[in-house]
Design a protein around this nucleic acid. Sequence first.
RNA 1: GCGAGAGUGGCGGAAUUGGUAGACGCGCAAGACUUAGGAUCUUGUGGAGGUCCUCCUCCGUGGGGGUUCGAGUCCCCCCUCUCGCACCA
Length: 875
Amino acid sequence: MPNAARLMAYPFEDIEPKWQEYWEDHQTFRTPDEPRQLSGEEKVYVLDMFPYPSGSGLHVGHPEGYTATDIVARYKRMQGVNVLHPMGWDAFGLPAEQYAIKTNTHPRDTTKENIAQFKRQLKSLGFSYDWQREINTTDPDYYKWTQWIFLQLYKKGLAYQSEEPVWWCEELGTVLADEEVIDGKSERGGYPCERVPMRQWVLKITEYADRLLEGLDDLDWPESTKEMQRNWIGRSEGANIYFDLVGVDDSLKVYTTRPDTLFGGTYMVLAPEHDLVDEITTDEHREAVEEYRQEALQKSDVERKQEDKTGVFTGGYAVNPATGEEIPVWVADYVLASYGTGAIMAVPAHDERDYAFAQKFDLPIREVVEGGNVDEEAYTEDGPHVNSANDDVDLNGLHNEEAQERIVEWLEEEGKGEHRVNYQLRDWLFSRQRYWGEPFPILFTEDGEDKPVPEDELPVTLPDIETFEPSGSPEGPLSNIEDWVNTTDPETGEPATRETNTMPQWAGSCWYYLRFIDPDNDERLVDPEKEQYWMPVDLYVGGSEHAVLHLLYARFWHKVLYDAGVVSTKEPFQTLVHQGMILGEKEYTTFVDPDGQYVSAERVEDGVDTRTGTEVERKELDEDEVEKDGDVFVLKEQPDVRVEARSHKMSKSRGNVINPDDVVDEYGADTLRLYEMFMGPLEQDKPWSTDDVEGVHRFLNRVWRLLVDDDELAVTDEEPEREQLRELHQTIKKVTQDIEHLDFNTAIAAMMEFLNAANKWDAVPREIAESLVLLLSPFAPHISEELWERLGHDESLAYADWPEYEEALLHREVVEMAVQVNGTVRGTIEVEVDADEEDVLAAAKEDENVARHLDGKTIQREIYVPGQIVNFVAN
RNA sequence: GCGAGAGUGGCGGAAUUGGUAGACGCGCAAGACUUAGGAUCUUGUGGAGGUCCUCCUCCGUGGGGGUUCGAGUCCCCCCUCUCGCACCA
């Protein structure tokens, strides 16, 4: 139903399609790509994280980042900079395949539909993408190069096969990567997963660990994201130490970051999965050890992480190389098989975990670093060493760092150990047992040897299939398609079979930013000249959920491509910004117990009244049913009942999802864009507010009415007044600086202030109207183009010159200054901008209220900050 | 527990090198125009107080101290929230 607001609104529903069509017809945002034509000219590459085109369409979170980059792209174009601003689709992925299984629809078809939907929605928002560069990771012309990159990794020995336990998820019919499994359940769907051994493709990202770590230093990225990557890589320095085993002809290798505490090592612990457990275990203990191992293997990670430590003695002993003592060897699941060597030397005096274990099993605790009280707790800080000497080496008195150096030196001399750098980063499990992914360009000959498909045979395309039933085994769906699996080796003509795993979804997004530079090149991944011109990406905007995986994998591939001479920069993304999450509207929630009584919010946890243990029901309240009492909200009617007041993540189940299409229908794309930028700082999470959307919409209406009266242009050709120019140039300065800093909310506020001032003028001079329209255009391009046209221009404003401010016009002749007495403002005075200090101070003293406060006091000090403040210190 | 970030009106949020806290918007209130108004326009709006109410006073940026002529901003201690990581030897 059209309400009154819509009837009064400017005709956005005509204007927006009109200009979207114009931009398309005129190819307004086509980026020239002849490098010779470009070289020497300034460029900027502004990139959004491309979306996965899901069936539910665009979410209001998408346009947030996309509008931010669009503003920058449009602003830079107007400054004469060459702008690359592309968009594409990360279209391989699990949802399309799950949907295929459910409905027997080919993922290609659903993907195509979803892309069409996303594209329509993005176009309706007026983003200035060069759609000629659109790419799609599922397009064989695209994944040909994904396969090509895999071959480079393969040829450099960075891709290998490994038989290792992986997460097999029965429900999804696939294995998952560690990072896709949370607490033994699939991240997507929450289905149970189990560890089974399987042949996998693995990428040696660990070989690049140090470079991935060092590369972070020079990037203009959020510190939190860099820190997360550093933690993920998890570099630590320490030593490998070898312990001889008693009665077994082998030695036990452990990794430790505290080799200096070696003299305090009073026992050893092996992970239950450790290879030497069988050998070390004595017959007497074998049964107990076996039992413990079985239990440990069946425990979930969560159970294994429980505080209470468990373990069992093997009966075996190892020799501490420093003390010569024989120390017992235990098996315990607090030692992880996947980190270090899967075995540790336990130093209970100086490690909290070992301390807890030693306490529980009554193992000796020997202090070797002074500073704490090891009768009470482990001491993990620095301190002088004690009890740490043998005939060859003496650490006593040394502090941690020196002691570490000394002992490692000694161990190396003795051949009992060596300095060692370790990482938490694991190699990247790169294969998936799915249909909807890039096939590997790998063949297996009849004797089982793997060999690459020759580059000129790429791409290896996905076969067409008719049913999407899971194969029911960890082998993927492709293994059932015999025509495809059975092929011939193009080099020898011998029979061969194809690799039936496919690549994970991360593959296509690891390098898409390069393909945008040269999307149609069928000779190479990217033309080197073009690559050199456009790279690196100058501004990359996307969600912080990709802080580690996508951004680390892409950096890894980029470095491999750098080594291969394909790219010219060491890092792909120079500046990175994460847009915040858009939350649902603020909700006021109260809780009601089964008797119908309100339960105050602080007493409720997980839907249960913590006092009585009974379940409570949620009840949504209207804003006017609550009021603020101190720091909290309470029921108006019953002020002792606290109310929960917060915004929640948008979700279907909560029913608080805002659909961008609805907002565009009701208020127009310019309003949606402007509102999302006005909500607050880009990086911050922000709650949606429909009232605020209307406020922004009103602003656009006021802009329209300022310049258009009854469908006629309403500007004057008279020269602007000095004060009008000052207002304008102040706004130009603020908007320009704010765009540079991505402070879009304050840029919009500045334009609103300007409008409030201009609304008081009798008429708006054309010159000023034009500048205002240009300033607004990156934010609200449709209304701006329309006004620009009505101002008499017959070309798009997309390449019009961005307004520049004149410093001289910014200054007022008279400024207002605050006058303080003892630090409290007591009056304001108007002074000439170039007035002398003496005159200002005199005027300040004359102010009636200031004089009153100075009366009877002696001025001790006069502080004068030109243009800002006067402060009299008096007593 | 560790790491990072953040606490400012009824709400979203502004505040250069420390220099008039609360820009801008929402909401709210009063008025104007109107058959009507949930449209539009104007004005007001942090709280408390004042016999000079187009004026003045006091209090106010999570809490407590400190530095300074002056602190939302700098320093120390504490509290709360959000997000990561979480037996990594």
